[in-house]
Every structure is written in C-alpha cells, then in structure tokens.
C-alpha cells in the first residue's frame, strides 16, 4: 500500500513536472553562471527561490530533478515495454511450438545472457551512437538508450514467458481447445498468453527498477543522455565532479530521488509477487 502510494506520488510528481516545477530547466534563460552552485535555501548563502540550490549552470535543482525523474521513468517504462513485448512474443512462441523454433530462440537468449545486461547496453549504446551521424546523436540519444536497455532485457522475459507457456500448454484446457478444433493462433492469443502474464508482470516491475538503474548508470558513465536534457544519472555525474569541492547538494538530491524511485518500484514488485502468488493467499 505504502509502495503503491509512493510510486503514484513519484510518478505523478514527475509526470506533471512542467506544472509543478518552479522553473523550466530547458529554458536557456535559466542558465546563468551567476546563480550557479548555490546551496539549498536553508543553508547559509542559499536563496529562497532555489529550494534545493542550483547546479553548476545555475539551474534550479528541484526543477531539474523533477524533469530528470520524468525522463528516467519514461525511459525505464519504454525500455521495459520493448523488452517485454519482444521477450514475451519470442518466449511464448518458443514454449508453445518447441522443437527447432525453441532451440534457436533459446540458444540466442543463452548466448546473449553470457554478456551481462548492463555491459550489453553500454555496448549497444556505444555502437548506436557511433553509427548515427554526428548531428543526430543528441536528439536520438534517448531512443538509443531505450533501444539498448530494451534489447539487453528481453532474454529474462523470454525465459519466464517460455517457462510459463510450457506449463500452460500442457494443461488440459489447451488440449480441450485443440480438440474443439480452434486454430493455433486463437489458442495462443486467447488461452496461453493471458495465463502467462502473471509471472511476466512480476518480473516486469523488477525489470522496471533495473531499467531505471540501467539508464541512470549509462548516463552516469557519460554513455547515456546528454547534459542538455538531464536525467537523474546525468545530474549525479555532473554533481560527482563537484563532490570534492563541497558542493554536495548537486549529487545528493538527485541520488535520493533516484533511490526513492527505485525503492518504490521494488516495493511494488515485492507486493505484487506476494499478491499474485496463489500459495500465499
């Protein structure tokens, strides 16, 4: 319950960032080095209109965090959706048809699993940026990140969906549908797929938390979203450079925002796993 509440508040706050945030960080007028590196308002030297202080370019931290959080959630959701659609489609086909289809799909998944997800995302992202022409890189950076995380994610979904499909397609209701004479397309869509979604949804929430972390990590490593449209990871990266000079707020607040966000999603996942587990009911 608390998890759902925090998640909803987080998502609402970030979704409505343009209306809530006191400033628009994308407004070039906001960038003024004069107001840069101001501490939070309650610390000596802080100014009341900048509640959480400003970053190195003079942008209001609170606004930037809200916008950054929005970007993080959007990227995470999009990446998970991509991984889920791809993985579930392949997993269900693999589990239902078995044989050669199964062998090929699962071998590819196995091979991909030998290279850990975050590495693969870094790699795909790196390649993606290199392949794109220079002038398009900034604009497409977000899509490259989504693509990289989504593509590195699908084997998890495929494995779970395949496992669930194997179990479901052995069940007698699927055989009953075959005896009735329904075509395979209908059996898969109407009978098998809806029954595999329960475990998939559980890993999707965990996947969402991991995708948000992955995006932040990529951005932190300077591989993800450019500083012009900052995400939480980018903000932390920028802040980290100023950590030793005592400008702790540029790192701390985005970091807290990120951790709270991921924590809420994880809590939601835990709660869902228990709620959807028939044994515990």
């Amino acid at each position: 319950m608390i998890a759902a509440f925090i998640t909803v508040v987080c998502i609402l706050a970030t979704m409505f960032a343009p209306w809530i945030a006191p400033f628009d960080p994308f407004d070039p007028a906001q960038i003024s080095l004069w107001d840069g590196k101001l501490p939070p308002s309650w610390v000596e030297g802080g100014q009341p209109q900048y509640l959480l202080g400003t970053d190195n370019q003079g942008r209001d931290m609170l606004s930037t965090i809200l916008y950054g959080g929005r970007l993080s959630i959007l990227v995470g959701l999009a990446a998970v959706c991509m991984g889920m659609v791809l993985g579930v489609t392949l997993g269900v086909l693999s589990g239902y048809f078995g044989g050669l289809t199964d062998t090929i799909i699962m071998r590819i998944a196995d091979i991909q699993l030998t290279i850990p997800g975050i590495l693969l995302a870094i790699l795909i992202n790196g390649i993606g940026r290199t392949v794109l022409p220079l002038d398009m890189r900034e604009d497409f950076a977000i899509f490259v990140v989504i693509f990289a995380i989504g593509l590195s994610d699908w084997p998890q979904f495929a494995r779970v969906a395949r496992g669930a499909t194997l179990v479901e397609s052995q069940k007698e209701y699927v055989q009953a549908a075959k005896v009735i004479g329904l075509p395979q397309r209908l059996i898969i869509l109407r009978h098998v797929l809806p029954n595999t979604l329960r475990p998939v949804l559980v890993i999707a929430t965990i996947g969402l938390a991991l995708a948000v972390i992955a995006e932040a990590t990529l951005s932190f490593l300077g591989q993800g979203i450019p500083p012009t449209t900052p995400s939480l990871g980018t903000l932390i990266r920028v802040g980290n450079e100023y950590l030793f000079s005592g400008l702790w707020w540029i790192t701390l607040f985005p970091a807290i925002a990120l951790v709270v966000l991921v924590f809420a999603v994880n809590l939601l996942g835990d709660w869902m796993r228990d709620a959807l587990n028939p044994k515990l009911r």
Binding site: A209, I213, A216, T217, F220, L221, I236, N240, L243, F244, W248, T251, A255, L258, V259, V262, F263, N266, L267, D270
Partner: peptide, 22 residues
Amino acid sequence: SLVGVSLPTFIIGIGLIYLFAV
C-alpha cells in the same frame, strides 16, 4: 536488503567515497 537492491552501484560507490574518503 530491499534498500540494497534499490541502490545503484555507482551511488553506493559515491556514498562510500564521501563517507570514508572525503
């Protein structure tokens, strides 16, 4: 442990550096 899985590696790193080194 639930907090643990929610902490991105780089944030743990930054936190530890700030605490033990800085």
